[in-house]
Amino acid sequence: MGVVVTGVRPSLEQTDDLTAAVAAARQGDEAAFRVVYREVQPKLLRYLRVLVGDDGEDVASETWLQVVRDLASFKGNGDSFRGWVATVGRHRAMDHLRRTRRRPAISTPVDTLVEVAGDADTEARALESAATDAAIALIATLPRDQAEAVMLRAVVGLDAETAAKVLGKRAGAVRTAAYRGLRRLAKHLDETGEGRQASPGPP
Protein backbone atom coordinates (compact mmCIF):
# COMPACT_ATOMS: atom_id res chain seq x y z
CA MET A 1 0.00 0.00 0.00
CA GLY A 2 2.70 2.38 0.94
CA VAL A 3 4.55 1.49 -2.19
CA VAL A 4 2.09 3.46 -4.21
CA VAL A 5 3.19 6.72 -2.76
CA THR A 6 6.88 6.08 -2.35
CA GLY A 7 7.71 7.09 -5.87
CA VAL A 8 8.76 10.41 -7.19
CA ARG A 9 5.59 12.13 -6.38
CA PRO A 10 6.17 15.82 -6.97
CA SER A 11 6.35 18.04 -3.98
CA LEU A 12 3.00 18.97 -2.58
CA GLU A 13 3.26 22.59 -3.45
CA GLN A 14 -0.39 23.17 -3.08
CA THR A 15 -1.24 23.71 0.50
CA ASP A 16 -4.54 22.05 -0.24
CA ASP A 17 -2.89 18.74 -1.03
CA LEU A 18 -0.97 18.71 2.18
CA THR A 19 -4.02 19.89 4.09
CA ALA A 20 -6.04 16.98 2.75
CA ALA A 21 -3.26 14.49 3.43
CA VAL A 22 -2.85 15.71 7.00
CA ALA A 23 -6.60 15.47 7.56
CA ALA A 24 -6.64 11.89 6.27
CA ALA A 25 -3.60 10.98 8.33
CA ARG A 26 -5.34 12.25 11.44
CA GLN A 27 -8.06 9.71 10.72
CA GLY A 28 -5.48 6.98 10.67
CA ASP A 29 -4.87 6.78 6.92
CA GLU A 30 -1.41 5.31 6.69
CA ALA A 31 -0.85 6.06 3.01
CA ALA A 32 -1.80 9.66 3.59
CA PHE A 33 0.58 9.90 6.50
CA ARG A 34 3.39 8.55 4.36
CA VAL A 35 2.68 11.26 1.82
CA VAL A 36 2.82 13.85 4.58
CA TYR A 37 6.04 12.42 5.95
CA ARG A 38 7.72 12.26 2.58
CA GLU A 39 6.72 15.79 1.80
CA VAL A 40 7.86 17.38 5.03
CA GLN A 41 10.72 15.20 6.24
CA PRO A 42 13.43 16.28 3.77
CA LYS A 43 12.82 19.92 4.54
CA LEU A 44 12.69 19.28 8.24
CA LEU A 45 15.93 17.32 8.05
CA ARG A 46 17.73 20.11 6.23
CA TYR A 47 16.51 22.66 8.73
CA LEU A 48 17.60 20.45 11.61
CA ARG A 49 21.01 19.95 10.08
CA VAL A 50 21.53 23.67 10.34
CA LEU A 51 20.68 23.47 14.03
CA VAL A 52 22.35 20.25 15.14
CA GLY A 53 24.59 19.26 12.26
CA ASP A 54 24.99 15.58 11.62
CA ASP A 55 22.67 14.69 14.48
CA GLY A 56 19.79 15.97 12.40
CA GLU A 57 18.61 12.48 11.52
CA ASP A 58 18.20 11.47 15.14
CA VAL A 59 16.44 14.68 16.03
CA ALA A 60 14.17 14.32 13.02
CA SER A 61 13.15 10.85 14.20
CA GLU A 62 12.36 12.17 17.66
CA THR A 63 10.39 14.95 16.06
CA TRP A 64 8.24 12.59 14.03
CA LEU A 65 7.55 10.36 16.98
CA GLN A 66 6.18 13.36 18.82
CA VAL A 67 4.25 14.50 15.76
CA VAL A 68 2.65 11.08 15.48
CA ARG A 69 1.77 11.11 19.13
CA ASP A 70 0.16 14.53 19.03
CA LEU A 71 -1.25 14.38 15.52
CA ALA A 72 -4.78 13.77 16.70
CA SER A 73 -4.82 17.08 18.51
CA PHE A 74 -3.38 19.06 15.61
CA LYS A 75 -5.72 21.48 13.93
CA GLY A 76 -4.89 23.53 10.88
CA ASN A 77 -4.04 23.43 7.22
CA GLY A 78 -0.95 22.23 5.40
CA ASP A 79 1.01 25.39 5.99
CA SER A 80 0.36 25.42 9.66
CA PHE A 81 1.28 21.74 9.74
CA ARG A 82 4.68 22.58 8.28
CA GLY A 83 5.03 25.24 10.93
CA TRP A 84 3.99 22.86 13.67
CA VAL A 85 6.46 20.20 12.61
CA ALA A 86 9.20 22.82 12.42
CA THR A 87 8.29 24.00 15.91
CA VAL A 88 8.42 20.50 17.33
CA GLY A 89 11.68 19.89 15.52
CA ARG A 90 13.18 23.08 16.83
CA HIS A 91 12.30 22.20 20.40
CA ARG A 92 13.74 18.74 20.01
CA ALA A 93 16.88 20.27 18.53
CA MET A 94 17.25 22.69 21.43
CA ASP A 95 16.81 19.82 23.86
CA HIS A 96 19.40 17.90 21.94
CA LEU A 97 21.87 20.77 22.12
CA ARG A 98 21.31 21.09 25.85
CA ARG A 99 21.88 17.38 26.25
CA THR A 100 25.03 17.22 24.27
CA ARG A 101 26.28 20.68 25.06
CA ARG A 102 28.25 21.01 21.93
CA ARG A 103 28.21 23.07 18.87
CA PRO A 104 26.68 21.64 15.76
CA ALA A 105 29.04 20.39 13.14
CA ILE A 106 28.29 19.57 9.57
CA SER A 107 30.71 17.29 7.90
CA THR A 108 30.48 18.80 4.45
CA PRO A 109 33.35 21.17 3.94
CA VAL A 110 31.97 24.58 3.13
CA ASP A 111 34.82 25.32 0.76
CA THR A 112 33.45 22.92 -1.77
CA LEU A 113 30.34 25.00 -2.08
CA VAL A 114 31.17 27.38 -4.83
CA GLU A 115 32.46 25.01 -7.42
CA VAL A 116 29.71 22.54 -6.80
CA ALA A 117 26.88 25.03 -6.64
CA GLY A 118 28.04 26.75 -9.79
CA ASP A 119 27.90 23.56 -11.78
CA ALA A 120 24.72 22.20 -10.32
CA ASP A 121 22.62 22.87 -13.39
CA THR A 122 24.71 20.89 -15.76
CA GLU A 123 26.12 18.08 -13.70
CA ALA A 124 24.79 14.78 -12.56
CA ARG A 125 22.40 14.16 -9.76
CA ALA A 126 25.17 13.26 -7.36
CA LEU A 127 26.58 16.67 -7.85
CA GLU A 128 23.21 18.23 -7.15
CA SER A 129 23.09 16.31 -3.95
CA ALA A 130 26.51 17.60 -3.04
CA ALA A 131 25.36 21.09 -3.94
CA THR A 132 22.44 20.74 -1.58
CA ASP A 133 24.68 19.59 1.25
CA ALA A 134 27.11 22.37 0.54
CA ALA A 135 24.35 24.98 0.42
CA ILE A 136 22.97 23.82 3.74
CA ALA A 137 26.45 23.83 5.22
CA LEU A 138 27.06 27.37 4.06
CA ILE A 139 23.75 28.61 5.41
CA ALA A 140 24.66 26.95 8.69
CA THR A 141 27.66 29.25 9.00
CA LEU A 142 25.38 32.26 9.37
CA PRO A 143 24.49 33.56 12.81
CA ARG A 144 21.80 31.25 14.02
CA ASP A 145 18.86 33.62 13.86
CA GLN A 146 19.69 34.41 10.26
CA ALA A 147 20.31 30.80 9.35
CA GLU A 148 17.01 29.72 10.85
CA ALA A 149 15.09 32.50 9.16
CA VAL A 150 16.57 31.63 5.78
CA MET A 151 15.96 27.90 6.21
CA LEU A 152 12.40 28.23 7.42
CA ARG A 153 11.49 30.61 4.64
CA ALA A 154 13.44 29.29 1.68
CA VAL A 155 13.62 25.56 2.43
CA VAL A 156 10.78 24.62 4.74
CA GLY A 157 8.63 26.99 2.74
CA LEU A 158 7.00 29.00 5.51
CA ASP A 159 5.80 32.55 5.11
CA ALA A 160 7.22 35.18 7.42
CA GLU A 161 4.29 35.00 9.82
CA THR A 162 4.44 31.23 10.25
CA ALA A 163 8.22 31.28 10.54
CA ALA A 164 7.88 33.96 13.20
CA LYS A 165 5.63 31.69 15.22
CA VAL A 166 8.14 28.89 15.01
CA LEU A 167 10.89 31.17 16.20
CA GLY A 168 8.83 32.99 18.79
CA LYS A 169 9.53 36.35 17.19
CA ARG A 170 7.69 39.03 15.30
CA ALA A 171 7.34 38.62 11.57
CA GLY A 172 9.29 41.83 10.99
CA ALA A 173 12.23 40.50 12.95
CA VAL A 174 12.23 37.31 10.92
CA ARG A 175 12.14 39.24 7.66
CA THR A 176 15.08 41.31 8.78
CA ALA A 177 17.05 38.29 9.91
CA ALA A 178 16.45 36.50 6.62
CA TYR A 179 17.39 39.61 4.68
CA ARG A 180 20.65 39.98 6.57
CA GLY A 181 21.37 36.34 6.07
CA LEU A 182 20.89 36.60 2.33
CA ARG A 183 23.10 39.65 2.14
CA ARG A 184 25.82 37.81 3.97
CA LEU A 185 25.49 34.82 1.68
CA ALA A 186 25.59 37.03 -1.39
CA LYS A 187 28.70 38.72 -0.12
CA HIS A 188 30.37 35.40 0.52
CA LEU A 189 29.44 34.16 -2.94
CA ASP A 190 30.75 37.33 -4.52
CA GLU A 191 34.07 37.01 -2.81
CA THR A 192 34.58 33.37 -3.55
CA GLY A 193 32.72 33.40 -6.84
CA GLU A 194 35.11 35.79 -8.53
CA GLY A 195 37.93 33.41 -8.00
CA ARG A 196 35.89 30.62 -9.50
CA GLN A 197 35.12 32.48 -12.67
CA ALA A 198 38.66 33.68 -13.14
CA SER A 199 40.23 30.29 -12.67
CA PRO A 200 37.96 27.27 -12.75
CA GLY A 201 40.47 25.01 -11.05
CA PRO A 202 41.17 26.29 -7.56
CA PRO A 203 44.63 25.51 -6.19
Binding site: A131, L138, I139
Partner: peptide
Amino acid sequence: DLLAAAASPPRGGEYP
Protein backbone atom coordinates in the same frame (compact mmCIF):
# COMPACT_ATOMS: atom_id res chain seq x y z
CA ASP B 1 21.52 28.90 -7.21
CA LEU B 2 22.42 28.51 -3.59
CA LEU B 3 18.84 28.78 -2.38
CA ALA B 4 17.61 26.51 -5.13
CA ALA B 5 20.18 23.93 -4.11
CA ALA B 6 19.20 24.20 -0.47
CA ALA B 7 15.55 23.70 -1.40
CA SER B 8 16.11 21.09 -4.08
CA PRO B 9 13.73 18.15 -4.39
CA PRO B 10 14.14 15.31 -1.91
CA ARG B 11 16.96 12.87 -2.31
CA GLY B 12 16.95 9.18 -1.55
CA GLY B 13 18.83 9.41 1.71
CA GLU B 14 16.53 11.87 3.35
CA TYR B 15 14.09 9.40 4.84
CA PRO B 16 16.40 7.62 7.26
